[in-house]
């Protein structure tokens, strides 16, 4: 039963991160603006992160579906989620009035807030449980 649930969670997470990554790949300028608005990275890194991050989300999401690669995928996703959570927390602490840009780039649809922190904490937990935990055979 646990193996089935972990397998289902990995499919969910893979789909979620592919869904999160695609709009950022299709509109890198818009995503670079989202990254810039956090005011955390130096100029030289903003566009590089905006180009690389969505592909990391997609590659790591797909890796979750491959038994031999799932831990590496989970490590990346947990790391990315951790970094995003830290950026959101800093943004909230500094009173930034910005969008998260986590799953959509449409303005006004993902304002940063405590909900985004809670959601990311749940996703980190799910990622580690489903991807990093003791190997379980898929059904």
């Amino acid at each position: 039963m646990k193996a089935r649930l972990q397998f289902a969670a990995r499919i969910f997470l893979a789909g979620l991160f592919i869904y999160a990554g695609l709009p950022k790949i299709l509109a890198p300028e818009a995503f670079a603006l989202v990254v810039f608005r956090f005011h955390l990275l130096p100029d030289v890194l903003i566009n590089v992160v905006a180009l690389l991050l969505p592909w990391l989300e997609i590659c790591a999401g797909l890796a979750l579906l491959l038994p031999a690669w799932r831990r590496a995928g989970a490590a990346w996703l947990a790391g990315l989620l951790g970094a995003a959570t830290a950026a959101l927390a800093l943004g909230l602490a500094r009173g930034l009035d910005i969008d998260c840009g986590c799953f959509t780039l449409q303005p006004g649809r993902s304002h940063i807030g405590l909900w985004s922190l809670l959601r990311n904490a749940l996703l980190i937990t799910l990622t580690l449980w489903a991807g990093w935990g003791k190997p379980a055979h898929a059904p």
């Binding site: 790949i25 690389l52 592909w55």
Partner: peptide, 18 residues
């Protein structure tokens, strides 16, 4: 190795698509 491989694959994809 696999963590690094994911990074290299993502870098190659992002550079090529851009």
């Amino acid at each position: 190795f696999r963590v690094l491989a994911i990074f290299i694959l993502a870098t190659a994809c992002s550079a090529s698509v851009n």
